Computed example of a mutant assay.
Amino acid sequence: MVECVIRDWQGGEVGTTSLELKTAKPENAAHIVHRALVRQMNNARQGTLSSKTRAEVRGGGRKPWRQKGTGRARAGSNRSPLWKGGGVTFGPKPRDFSVKMNRKERRLALRTALLGRAEDMVVVQEFSEQLPRPKTRELVSALGRWGVSSDQKVLLIVTERDEMVQLSARNLCNVKLISATNLNVYDLLATDRLVVTATALEKIQEVYGD
């Protein structure tokens, strides 16, 4: 179980909350999180890269010159991989990179990765009412009051995507907005700080808690 301090819009402490999730054993934690990360990155690959073999390249039907008597090397096609404009030997072909992983393992890896970033987590009150209109400057100021520096990559986790919050955060290249039900291992690991609203933390406990 992790105890977290809740901060308001001004950065002051207004209470505490806790997050209790079942995680992998310490000796297996790194392995299962790594498997989940590799799975996610592999499944994101399109696998559409394709090159043509000598059989697929246009042309090359006629033998360039006779077999003997010219003093040149034997050649049966001008679309050989040895020739300019020829086919590719062992080139890439469309393939499926997807990796399978059990649902229980995926959820366990996600919970393990989340609690592994507990020291970098900042829990704040719901702040959508503080942004009646899109204002990136106010969101940046709030992040500073919450202890997040401007050069840190931030994963902002909310219960549901609010339009004003999304419009305020979209111009920040180091801030990514995500809902509590769409958590993934890659985003949790590829960030410096996690900023989670208190309601989103409750949603995480509800969805991922066993």
Rank of each mutant, 00 (worst) to 15 (best):
S150G: 11
L82Y: 00
A109V: 03
I6F: 01
G85L: 05
A29K: 12
S98M: 02
R35L: 13
E138C: 02
S149R: 15
R117V: 03
S149A: 15
V123I: 15
V207T: 14
E160L: 10
A73L: 00
R79E: 00
V2D: 02
N43W: 01
Q205Y: 02
R72Q: 14
L183I: 01
M1E: 08
N171F: 04
T159A: 09
L82E: 00
G11A: 08
Q205F: 00
T159I: 00
D151P: 00
R161P: 02
R35E: 12
E119P: 01
K100Q: 11
E206C: 02
E206M: 07
E163P: 09
L172N: 08
E119D: 15
A24M: 07
G61N: 12
A24H: 05
G71P: 11
L21E: 06
T199M: 11
G144M: 10
T136Q: 09
T16N: 12
G12Q: 15
W65Q: 10
K203S: 11
S18R: 13
R95G: 02
V122G: 09
S98Y: 03
G47S: 08
A113M: 08
A118I: 09
R103T: 11
N42Q: 14
E160G: 08
L194N: 05
V2K: 12
K100S: 10
G85E: 03
R58W: 00
L156V: 06
L189W: 04
A36S: 13
N184V: 01
V175I: 14
S128R: 13
L183A: 04
V2R: 13
R145Y: 06
G61H: 11
E160M: 06
R133G: 09
R45N: 03
N184Q: 04
T17Y: 05
P92W: 00
S141V: 10
K52R: 14
G91M: 09
A190N: 15
Q152T: 05
L139Y: 09
G86C: 03
G91K: 09
K84T: 00
L110F: 04
D162E: 12
K93E: 01
R111C: 15
L21C: 09
K22S: 13
L194D: 04
G12W: 05
D162V: 10
T70R: 11
K22D: 10
A200T: 03
R54C: 01
G59K: 11
T199C: 09
I157H: 06
V57Q: 04
R106S: 10
K63S: 08
V165Y: 01
A24I: 05
G209N: 07
R58K: 15
V148K: 12
L194W: 08
L131M: 10
L167S: 13
Q40N: 05
K176L: 10
A142Q: 08
V14I: 14
L37G: 02
E27Y: 09
A73H: 03
G209W: 06
Q125V: 08
R133I: 07
Q205W: 03
L156R: 05
K153L: 03
S77R: 08
K52Q: 07
S128E: 14
S51N: 06
H31E: 12
A169W: 01
L19R: 07
K203F: 00
W83G: 00
D162C: 04
D162N: 15
E3A: 13
F97V: 08
N28A: 13
T48K: 13
M1F: 06
H34C: 09
D151F: 07
H31D: 12
